[in-house]
């Protein structure tokens, strides 16, 4: 009986340590994002990015929602993602391209970091995700399989 209580106590402490570790990883990310936003990094056009976006079937207007999802994740980035893509009046096919890309590849820093805490390899966790997202979105854009309506 005593042993069970002890092991639960240890689990509680381990859980708290995990919470602390994740916070130490995520808090600087949040600060970095807020700083970048406060100084208007996302509002300025990024040089050289338009051709890359075009390959993915996206217009320059899709950059902010793409970055928001890529770095922040669908949930935390959702506010920016949805409101900006409406503001920019992105056509439906671009919204679908965005959704396909971001569904496979979002919140990349945070997701990778928390599995690295458990000992995972960043290269193998992030590399294939990035490759798949770029590959599938570019393939869809090239084949024109993203329908004009819907």
């Amino acid at each position: 009986m005593w042993e069970i209580v002890l092991s639960l106590g240890r689990a509680l402490i381990d859980g708290l340590i995990l919470c602390g570790e994740i916070t130490l990883v995520v808090a600087p990310l949040m600060l970095g994002y807020e700083m970048a936003k406060a100084y208007g990094v996302f509002e300025r056009p990024w040089p050289g990015v338009a051709p890359v976006l075009r390959r993915l079937g996206l217009s320059p207007g899709a950059l902010v929602p793409l970055l928001a999802g890529f770095f922040l994740g669908l949930l935390y980035g959702a506010g920016i993602l949805v409101s900006v893509s409406r503001e920019q009046a992105l056509p439906a096919r671009e919204c679908l391209a965005l959704a396909v890309f971001l569904a496979t590849c979002h919140a990349v820093v945070e997701d990778t970091a928390i599995f690295m805490l458990l000992g995972g390899s960043a290269f193998w966790i992030l590399g294939p995700r990035l490759l798949l997202a770029v590959g599938i979105t570019a393939w869809l854009a090239r084949r024109g399989r993203l329908p004009a309506s819907r």
């Binding site: 669908l74 949805v82 990778t112 390899s121 294939p128």
Partner: peptide, 30 residues
């Protein structure tokens, strides 16, 4: 670390499916 990496890759691509589907729905009907 190999097992964590495999889990990290699977779950990195597919996670929180229920909640995130709601966000995706805001972008596209699919």
């Amino acid at each position: 670390w190999q097992q964590v990496s495999v889990l990290g890759l699977i779950l990195g691509i597919a996670h929180s499916l229920v909640v995130e589907a709601a966000v995706v729905r805001e972008l596209t009907q699919r």
